[in-house]
């Protein structure tokens, strides 16, 4: 890895991330407005991994994040949009990056998450007046242990991970029935060792990350056949060095995150060629204007820039901060949350 040192265009990536906020007129940026909270998490975490988080105005970010909070406790992707668990996690993660989780009403937020745990049952008989009720991560857990993303009842193991990760960061994991939550995730396990969105769903590296991380945070990794899943995951690496997300698909930088974290969490990351993967990620940089794309010479975006830099961090690329594979935040941020409690 040391041989590749110096090839990461740190300054250009920082410049690129800071410039995104200014280019608001293209179709792509308007089309992404509703998930600006995710964008904030991707951009800011990248800056932190690069050691450059101080280049942003912390107060400005936090005040915008808090404007996205719905009265129920959950967060929207942007001001004026509806709350959803996807953006609630990003909001919590952004606050954690700045060591500002104390601005949250933690109990209100976690109660709402609990509520989403009962959504499936409620969705069929849903009436609009429920909108005014509490809504957030604790509230999203259903009877079978699954989680809904919002009051509209869509169920997915992505939401199980998000709820578990969010509550873990808030020290409120005891509010949900983790045994049931784990049981549901295990019911989405496939015969190739991977996991799908819902029971019977095909294995997909993104989904595997969610399920493996959720099992990691709940101390339940023993449910995984590490050798079987590890082989499936390491076969995601193609001759180019890049990783794909499912068999017979193209490689893509974002899988550097999803496949790598999963392999690390089950202690099988040595089964891939790390240097070749780092090479692939570095080749996806826009060396002129900064940013990282899905594949070499494609258009860059903040999503792939984050996954590229985070992937390099997982590969122990020199000069980058280490990232925690399950909670998806820098290790120093996570250690502070778990070990510096006063």
């Amino acid at each position: 890895m040391d041989l590749l040192s110096g090839e990461l265009e740190v300054e250009k990536h920082v410049k690129y991330i800071l410039s995104i906020e200014k280019k608001k007129d293209s179709f792509e940026s308007v089309a992404m407005e509703h998930l600006r909270m995710n964008g904030a998490y991707w951009g800011l975490t990248t800056l932190d991994l690069l050691g450059k988080i101080e280049t942003v105005d912390q107060d400005e970010v936090i005040s915008w994040v808090m404007q996205c909070q719905h009265e129920s406790g959950g967060f929207a992707g942007n001001v004026g949009h509806d709350p959803h668990i996807l953006y609630t996690l990003s909001a919590v993660q952004v606050l954690a990056l700045f060591d500002k989780l104390d601005v949250l009403d933690v109990d209100k937020l976690s109660d709402c998450i609990l509520w989403l745990n009962f959504m499936e049952k409620n969705a069929a008989t849903f009436s609009p007046c429920l909108l005014d009720r509490k809504l957030d991560i604790c509230g999203l857990q259903n009877e079978d242990g699954s989680f809904s993303g919002d009051i509209w009842g869509e169920v997915d193991t992505r939401f199980s991970y998000i709820a578990i990760c969010c509550l873990s960061l808030l020290h409120r994991l005891d509010k949900i029935n983790t045994e049931k939550a784990v049981e549901y995730i295990v019911s989405c396990q496939n015969l190739d060792g991977g996991f799908g969105c819902t029971p019977g769903g095909e294995s997909h590296a993104g989904q595997i990350f969610c399920c493996v991380s959720a099992l990691a945070i709940t101390g339940s990794l023993y449910h995984i056949d590490k050798d079987l899943l590890g082989w499936w995951l390491c076969e995601r690496q193609l001759k180019s060095g890049g990783l794909n997300g499912r068999p017979e698909k193209l490689p893509d930088v974002c899988y550097s995150w999803w496949v790598l974290t999963s392999l690390i969490l089950i202690d099988r990351v040595h089964w891939i060629d790390k240097v070749k993967l780092a090479r692939f990620i570095l080749d996806c940089q826009d060396k002129e204007n900064g940013g990282i794309s899905d594949r070499p010479d494609d258009a860059v975006d903040v999503f792939h820039t984050y996954f590229g830099v985070a992937g390099l961090s997982l590969l122990e690329y020199p000069g980058l901060k280490a990232i925690d594979p399950a909670h998806a935040l820098p290790v120093d941020v996570i250690n502070k949350i778990f070990f510096d409690r006063k």
Binding site: S168, A216, T218, L221, I266, E316, F338
Partner: peptide, 25 residues
């Protein structure tokens, strides 16, 4: 030596919620 620990979540720890609290530390 390493910045990434591949067994960080395969052991008992507050991170994996497998120890009660961290007063021991």
């Amino acid at each position: 030596v390493h910045s990434i620990d591949t067994t960080r979540y395969l052991c008992s720890s507050p991170l994996s919620h497998t120890v009660e609290d961290n007063c021991d530390f």
